[in-house]
Simulated assay, not measured.
Amino acid sequence: MKLWTVPFEDLMISTRFGNTHVVASGSIDAPALILFHGMTFSAEEAANWVLDVLAGLQLQSAIFIGYSMGVG
């Protein structure tokens, strides 16, 4: 993050699964964009976790981008 040229804020969001580290960056007036990694992510539990993160960020909606590690 030392090379990141846009101001950012480190946040800890409390969820039913524990705390989630979030890096918030960019204009607060822009649509929310949430980036996910695909490591050890359970589809059933992911929905509840995402709802908790959105609530913690006080967001009603967001654009989501992520990747999947696939199945072996």
Rank of each mutant, 00 (worst) to 15 (best):
A55G: 04
A62L: 07
G18S: 14
V50S: 01
F36N: 02
T20M: 15
G66H: 00
W4H: 12
V6C: 11
M1I: 10
A43N: 05
G70P: 08
F64Y: 05
I34C: 02
G38R: 02
F36G: 01
F8Y: 15
L54H: 08
A46T: 07
V50Q: 02
G38C: 01
F36L: 15
A32T: 13
G72P: 09
V23D: 08
F41W: 04
F64R: 01
G26W: 11
N19W: 10
M12L: 15
E45S: 05
T20L: 15
M12P: 04
F36E: 00
L57N: 13
S25F: 14
A30H: 14
L59N: 05
F8P: 07
A55P: 02
V53N: 06
E9K: 15
Y67C: 01
T20N: 08
A47Y: 02
S25L: 13
S42P: 00
L35N: 01
Q60E: 14
V53Y: 07
G18M: 11
W49R: 10
F64W: 04
F36D: 02
M39C: 02
A32M: 07
A43W: 01
F36P: 01
P7W: 11
Y67V: 01
S42Q: 03
I34N: 00
A30N: 14
S68M: 03
E44R: 06
A55S: 14
T40M: 10
V6R: 13
V71A: 08
E9C: 13
A55D: 14
L33Y: 11
T40D: 06
F64I: 05
A32D: 10
K2E: 14
T20Y: 03
A43R: 10
I34P: 02
S25Q: 10
D10S: 14
E45M: 02
G56C: 10
G72C: 01
A55T: 13
Q60C: 05
K2N: 15
L59S: 05
S61D: 12
I13Q: 08
G56E: 11
L11Q: 15
G66T: 03
A47V: 09
E9Y: 10
W49I: 01
G18V: 14
V22C: 13
R16M: 04
D52G: 04
Q60K: 13
T20Q: 14
G26H: 12
V6P: 03
A55H: 12
F41Q: 03
A55R: 13
A32P: 03
D52R: 06
A32Y: 09
E45L: 06
L59R: 02
E9F: 10
T15D: 08
F41R: 05
G26Q: 12
M69I: 06
I34W: 00
L57E: 13
A43S: 08
A55K: 15
V71M: 05
G38N: 02
I28Y: 09
F41S: 02
W4A: 14
I63S: 08
I65M: 04
F17V: 00
I65C: 06
L54S: 09
G18D: 09
D29N: 11
